[in-house]
Amino acid sequence: MSEARAGGRIVAVGGGKGGVGKTLVSTHLALAMAERGQRVLLVDADLGGANAHTVLGIAPPLVTLSDVVDRRLSLADVAVATPFANLRFVSGALDDIAAANPQHASKLRLLRQLSIVEADVVVLDLGAGTSFNTLDFFLIAHTGILVVLPEPTSVENAYRFLKAAFFRRLAIVEKAFGIKDLVDEARAQRNKLNIHTPADLLKAIEKRNPDAGRHLRLQMGRFVPRLVLNQARTDLNGDDAHVAHDMASACRRFLGIQLEVLAILPDDEAVRRAVRARQPLRNVAPDSAIKKALDQLAEAVLVGPVENEAAA
């Protein structure tokens, strides 16, 4: 891995919907990477409903992201040590409504700090929903992970999240490359031109201006969200893994978004035990299938390619 970047590799874990296992995945990723000797900073960026500290089994730190949003402290100041070697933790804002919806300038400052903070890996545990705040955290990440359950509600929210993230990134790219007018023009005519999906929009732009279109396509082609299907079962009714593969295929074919299936995590009661024990899963159920699968996920993220660069 190249260490050319100033900060660490940013891994964001989102998913659109609450309760799909974002915190499970992000805390475990952080712990597994720390165990492999990476200096990890876990940031609970669920600004409205932070609870990664509970999953880690530590007391909520006294300083939180609120203090960074308020400009009282820097990100490094609020990163507290944990009982786990190589892992530092930044707590989300716990009861601070203002911090849950930071001003644009505060947010930019936070994003900048995330990208230069002293760490090998920064893991972001994102909140639910598709607010700009959540999307922007997802988009600055080098690896953006979407956690989904094999349930219609979760799949529906995941598609919403993907489309919103795509268009958010498009807005950033079009501004950066001075082709905002072109994109706006296509967008303004979206009914006339039959533009309903990201793929339609890119095609329309490409038709209008092949050079700009190709460039845009290249930029947007770097948006490769990773899919983690959680609570997957294999039984007489079939194999839930197909949900993940269906989603990837559908995204490619009908949305023009490359979604890559990164992991299929088993439905495992060990997760419930760990949450109730308020201890990390890897301590409560070290031999569980889910723990092993999550370890492999961490490994895969570490050795995997760096994506989504130049988004911010």
Binding site: E151, P152, F254
Partner: peptide
């Protein structure tokens, strides 16, 4: 998929799309 008869395609597209 596009008509949402599989879980993986659920709400992939809006009705017009």
């Amino acid at each position: 998929l596009v008509e949402g008869r599989t879980i993986g395609g659920y709400f992939l597209l809006d009705p017009v799309a």
